[in-house]
Amino acid sequence: MRILSALILRELKALFYSPIAYVVLGLVLALSGLNFYLIVSAFSAGPTPVTVVEAFFNTGAFWFSFFAIFPLITMRLYAEEFRLGTYELLQTAPVRDWQIVFAKFTGAYLFFLLLWLPTALYFGIYRWIAREQAAPALGNYFGTYVLLALMGALFVSVGCLASVLTKNQIIAAILSFVALAVIFNFSILGFVVPNLSPASRRVLSYFSSVEHMYEFNRGILSTRPVVYYLSGALLLQYLTYAVLQYRRWKF
């Protein structure tokens, strides 16, 4: 456990000592802030059937900033270590591959959570300024942030796998960006493809992050996305671990 804590701390230090983390945080906050401001501006024009919280997490700007951060967070996790040769040093330490995989995932995941936590401040700030709630029930907030955490687990894992496959950070970023773009496009397939059978629509909706968000940020939580994101994250982390093991056999 001590080794694991030390490894996680190492990852967090590596992330937070790098100015790029703050640039990413600043960019995400600027984009989300602008998105939030535009929604509130639009809503003040007249009554709407959706809440500020529901609208904020269902815009194109939100999904773009959400998917775009994962390559940035994860591209250097393994690729940088491979390039600088520090991974070989790490291998000489009394740590197991699964501990490295878990620590890198946890570090990146905690950073991801920290990136999105300030968005919760928006609703507090909104309440302070406008003297009204951004959503009528706690379930709206709870559902939304639970889903963000679940999606984060899977998408950070996608980035981890992309990073372990190459020594080049840029290639790692491109790989994870392409994979996430495929996942996102799969999410919206059910909305754009006409005349799908009810069965196909049900299958697509199982994988659709957009539909998951629609439900969760209205306070309806489903077990399907929980299993999908957690099991997907588990699978990808296992593949990451397997790639690391493969690197060991090669030498």
């Binding site: 706690l138 379930g139 559902g143 439900e215 309806i220």
Partner: peptide
């Protein structure tokens, strides 16, 4: 993972947290 997802697809539950809504 495949079995877990197939089971989740077939036997799922929704929890309504719209209380107070």
């Amino acid at each position: 993972v495949a079995v877990a997802n197939m089971l989740a697809f077939k036997y799922h539950r929704r929890v309504d947290l719209t209380r107070g809504n």
